[in-house]
């Protein structure tokens, strides 16, 4: 039993990894939002040609494994443009670009599910395209997208563990160190799993709460 007690001294070390994981997740989600929302608006309201170009972006980032994307950007693409980014920054950017592709699909679906009568009504009272999108479509679409967005949080949280492959000091990388240092595996990895489990379900719980609080009474959420 003594060797299991020795694991307790590593708890602060692993807890620090939560901050790294949090910056990967929040950074990735944030960049993904900044990429994904304009992408969705352009795909929904832009022309066909633009749509095709943007679809290629989405297709590339959704069809390539995260590990391959991380390696491609870390060892090949960023260096060839002359950036020397550390693993953390590379990971946040890659997670963000990838999440942008997924989030654009989420927002596109929610924009599509806003009742068409709303758009007609906005046009009827003389709103410009810009006003229509900003004041009529987006406030509804963003609310509708919260459940899918909370799912995206869960996905990116679990994907952040893959950044261990570049040596980012997030939870899993640290647990691997602990495992090597102590020669134990079952309990450290179980601990990591439970930590991710708790982070996943507490995060989606918060999103559920936000979803309920921001609901417009009587608004019909379209088929999703």
């Amino acid at each position: 039993m003594t060797y299991i007690y020795s694991l307790f001294q590593y708890i602060p070390f692993i807890a620090e990894g939560v901050l790294w994981t949090a910056s990967l997740v929040l950074g990735g989600l944030g960049i993904g939002f900044i990429i994904g929302l304009p992408l969705a608006i352009a795909q929904s309201f832009g022309g066909k040609k633009l749509g095709k170009v943007l679809n290629a972006y989405v297709w590339f980032f959704r069809g390539t494994p995260l590990l391959v994307l991380l390696s491609l950007f870390y060892w090949a693409i960023f260096p060839s443009f002359g950036f020397k980014l550390d693993p953390l920054k590379t990971s946040i950017l890659v997670l963000g670009m990838r999440s942008g592709a997924y989030q654009s699909q989420i927002f596109k679906d929610s924009i599509k599910s806003v009742d068409y009568g709303q758009i007609l009504a906005a046009k009827a009272i003389g709103m410009t395209q810009r006003k229509l999108i900003l004041y009529i479509v987006l406030p509804q679409a963003l609310r509708i997208s919260i459940p899918a967005w909370s799912n995206e949080y869960a996905v990116i949280l679990k994907d952040s563990a893959i950044c261990f492959a570049l040596g980012v000091m997030e939870i899993l990388t640290r647990v691997r160190y602990v495992s090597t240092a102590t020669g134990l595996a079952l309990i450290p990895y179980l601990f990591a799993g439970i930590l991710f489990f708790v982070l996943t379900f507490s995060g989606t719980g918060i999103m559920d709460f936000i979803h309920k609080r921001t609901r417009i009474p009587g608004m019909v959420e379209g088929l999703r």
């Binding site: 949280l157 679990k158 994907d159 563990a161 893959i162 261990f164 899993l172 691997r176 495992s179 595996a185 990895y189 990591a192 799993g193 991710f196 489990f197 996943t200 379900f201």
Partner: peptide, 9 residues
């Protein structure tokens, strides 16, 4: 709830 990579390890 477990990341796949954690399950793998």
């Amino acid at each position: 709830g477990f990341p796949l990579i954690v399950t793998l390890f």
